[in-house]
Write a protein that binds this DNA or RNA. Structure first.
Lengths: 295, 295
DNA sequence: CTCTCCTTGTCTAGGGTTTGTCTAATGTTG
DNA sequence: CAACATTAGACAAACCCTAGACAAGGAGAG
């Protein structure tokens, strides 16, 4: 507990102003000693500092006070799991599976661009996804979990890979009259690189892919399959945390459209218990699914 | 809620002009305090920024006002001078702020692709971001919150927009020896479309942009600025939930690299209290920052 | 071309409101 | 007694309001 003078020294706000802010806006109501002396606690100091920051930023003091008193902010959210999609597959000799990790460690945008240019222009996505991209992403995730690369560095590389995949997806065009497929993740799932890769392969195989992305709740999947009238749905299962929600999502989709098949990709697909499994090679899974749907 | 002075500082529009735009065109109708002082909310700021972007792009202010006002759910705003209202032939590409909402409702990948092709190939990102893309994304978010579009539909459209932005980002190249800028969001922040747009503009302005993306915790930012040695950091502030974490992040960055300036973009930038504000026009903010760093 | 008419941003005058600081009178602590 | 607190009131500076005026510039008529 701090006296006025102490509070003023801590916050840098003059004593008079401190009292005025209390009298006029009630931004804090410090306790009092028997003699009526103010006693500020840490919460009051924090609140005053917040108000001061707003005023310094140009806010009218009265508005700032309203903001500080009404604006009780939420706590930060949780950290998500780091595992990526399926990584089974034989690496070709000469492939550097730790390339993404080293790019993250370097944190060099120029080198990252050159490396991804090299890979994405010289090699087919179907050819390198299983043998290099997925394993390399998995190693990047592992390095992140171990603290060997920072969150920022992992995001920096992942975002760049995602941009390449996004370009590849957009430059694929559906054949006229092709079967429609909805592709995405269940609610809570956020590792979309694997499922985006798969969506790109499906689009390149001529299917009419509607890519929805990550973190879609079951009810919304139900609406999507009803509105979109697809011939199939593909759900990614990149993490064990996703299992309950994926089960729920599969059930809700089946309830909405009983004849619509739901396919699963990703490392933990076999643990779901329902849905059609596509296996652990993205390339052959895409090929199979395209053949199956166009038949 | 912001005072006139504050609104002027946020938008870069002089106070007099702000009042005149209100008096002459009714482009905004801010609330009033009991004493009659204007109080601008976030929607008003966004609208003013959109109008400013149009005027900077060469539109006559009266036309710009009609453009910005059209289609919004603003009931009592009547036009004072109806004689000069010609709605014929005023159709500019991308002037439908509800286009993204209608694309989400349709849930039609083919139409979505065509619409985005049209906009992203016919118009400059710098020209349309403030006047169309950001307002349209905001409406999409509002429609989602109201339950008018499903999560899946919102993701479907957002992901497509993100793919276009990603392509634009990757096709911009830094000038040799250009100043490096780190761009991303704080931990918990997930709305990266705005900050990705801004990163793209910076890259197109010739800066060496290292894009990190969403949901990066403070400690990781500290590592990133130490390893990356940028000339500046740009943090997005898309939501009030982000405020405490952004404050923390700014402080941690300042502790790690005391001479490194941290700039803020996004709707709630001015509520952070620290950091350098870039204002609410992405195009002019990018221009300003590029000039400032290359000087 | 010139001459209007209109638009638009800026400025002024007169008058209220808000806000940080200061003063006076008084009480408490050590 | 010196240092620190309290309250209430006073006050200048900064801020905001309205209504009107005005110059620069564009558009169109003659």
């Amino acid at each position: 507990m701090y006296s006025v003078k102490h509070a003023a020294a801590m916050t840098g706000i003059p004593v008079d102003t401190l009292r005025m802010w209390e009298r006029r806006y009630g931004v804090v109501t410090p306790l009092r000693t028997p003699a009526g002396y103010r006693l500020y606690d840490d919460a009051a100091i924090a609140r005053l500092s917040a108000m001061q920051a707003l005023v310094k930023a140009g806010w009218a003091p009265r508005r700032a006070a309203v903001q500080v008193t009404s604006g009780t902010t939420l706590g930060p959210t949780d950290v998500t799991d780091a595992s990526t999609l399926d990584t089974e597959g034989a690496a070709e000799p000469g492939d550097d599976l730790d390339l993404l990790v080293s790019l993250a460690v370097d944190f060099d945008a120029e080198r990252l661009t050159r490396a991804l240019d090299d890979i994405f222009t010289r090699r087919d996505l179907e050819e390198m996804a299983d043998s290099w991209l997925m394993p390399a992403l998995s190693r990047l995730g592992t390095a992140w979990q171990r603290g060997e690369v920072s969150v920022a560095a992992e995001h920096f590389v992942s975002a760049a890979v995602q941009r390449r995949l996004a370009s590849a997806f957009d430059s694929a065009h559906a054949a006229p009259g092709a079967p429609r497929v909805l592709v995405g993740l269940a609610k809570g799932s956020r590792h979309e690189l694997g499922v985006l890769t798969f969506a790109t392969m499906l689009a390149r195989a001529g299917l009419d892919v509607t890519y929805i992305g990550a973190d879609v709740p079951p009810d919304s999947w139900a609406i999507a399959v009803t509105v979109g009238q697809p011939a199939a749905v593909v759900l990614g299962v990149p993490s064990t945390d996703d299992l309950p929600v994926v089960r729920d999502t599969v059930a809700v989709i089946a309830a909405a459209e009983p004849d619509l098949p739901t396919f699963l990709v990703g490392r933990h697909q076999s643990e779901v218990g329902t849905g059609h499994l596509l296996g652990h090679s993205l390339a052959s899974a895409a090929e199979d699914l395209a053949r199956q749907l166009t038949a």
